[in-house]
């Protein structure tokens, strides 16, 4: 085993405790003294190895911990939950107001129509010109209010609306589909991606359909086609294409599983075993890319 002759100087240098002069002298010695150089390299390597090991240790401790909710754009959801509840209560109050107010008025009116003869007499008295002339304010005439009938959406409409709202909560764009850098114009899928991002979904579908299996960008084009079909309301077709891309992408397809689920939901397939099994899988995996998206699906 080799002995270290310069460990004190090396430590001082690595810890940054040398003065500027000492530091410069040390660096000059490093160039001329081979032993010092060898010891310094070994020390530096040991330090780097320890730092690397420490990082691995931190990671393994973190991975062993029970999974916490992933942090991301929706990380403030908990903070916002209070406001969400507040707004929901407000909305519920408005709805209740509109639902019960007409019936309340109706009750008043029914009460007036159904009162015994004494009251009718009294009412007649109240309507005599003498009384009328004495009253400062005209007696309000309660006219039957038209019942407000809001169309109740069917189950399938509800599911479509839910799927669409969850889908829109995480807008899909293809400008950065190959990473954090913008998609270059010479990329084969650029025209389809751009059409999609510009909201020209039919055009995007048309351009995406020009790709054949084996072409560069085929899978990306299929992905655009799947999203395009979803946007245009062809949910079953979207689901079929999402399935195809997921299958072809191997594990990388996981990130599309949320969209497959939404397509199935909108296509009225939320009772199928495939839907339930995929939903269950995503819900159980907190790091699944669609975990947060799926959390928003509350049937």
């Amino acid at each position: 085993m080799s002995e270290f002759k310069y460990s004190e100087r090396i430590d001082a240098y690595l810890e940054g405790s040398m003065s500027t002069d000492e530091r410069q002298r040390f660096e000059a010695d490093l160039l001329s003294n081979e032993d010092l150089q060898a010891e310094f390299d070994a020390s530096r390597a040991a330090q780097n190895a320890v730092e690397f090991m420490a990082f691995q240790g931190m990671l393994s401790r973190i991975k062993k911990e029970p999974p916490t909710k992933p942090i991301g754009n929706l990380a403030n959801l908990n903070n916002n939950r209070f406001w969400l509840v507040f707004v929901l209560i407000g909305l519920a109050s408005i709805v209740l107001f509109w639902v019960f107010l007409p019936s309340g008025k109706k009750e008043i009116e029914q009460g007036q129509q159904g009162v015994p003869s004494d009251s009718t007499h009294l009412q007649k008295e109240l309507q005599t010109p003498e009384i009328d002339s004495l009253s400062l304010n005209p007696i309000p005439v309660i006219t039957p209010k038209k019942e407000v009938t809001t169309p109740v959406p069917s189950h399938s409409e509800k599911y479509i609306a839910l799927a669409k709202s969850v889908y829109e909560s995480e807008p899909v764009t293809f400008a950065n589909m190959r990473g954090s850098q913008p998609l270059p114009k010479n990329d084969p899928v650029f025209p389809a991606a751009k059409s999609f991002d510009d909201g020209q979904f039919e055009q995007a579908l048309k351009l995406a359909s020009d790709f054949n299996k084996g072409d560069a960008g085929y899978l990306q084009a299929r992905e655009i086609a799947a999203h395009g079909n979803f946007k245009l309301g062809y949910y079953e077709k979207a689901a079929v294409i999402f399935q195809e891309v997921i299958k072809a992408s191997g594990d990388a397809g996981e990130r599309l599983e949320g969209y497959l689920l939404l397509s199935w939901l909108a296509a009225g397939k939320s009772q199928t075993a495939s839907y339930k099994s995929l939903l269950n899988k995503i819900q159980k995996e907190p790091f699944h890319p669609a975990h947060e998206m799926v959390e928003k699906i509350k049937l």
Binding site: M1, S2, F4, S7, A38, E39, D41, A42, S43, A45, A46, A49, V50
Partner: peptide, 13 residues
């Protein structure tokens, strides 16, 4: 660890 690195310059590098 430093001793080990000094004796294994290839890995140390």
């Amino acid at each position: 660890l430093r001793d080990w690195m000094k004796d294994h310059p290839k890995t140390a590098k």
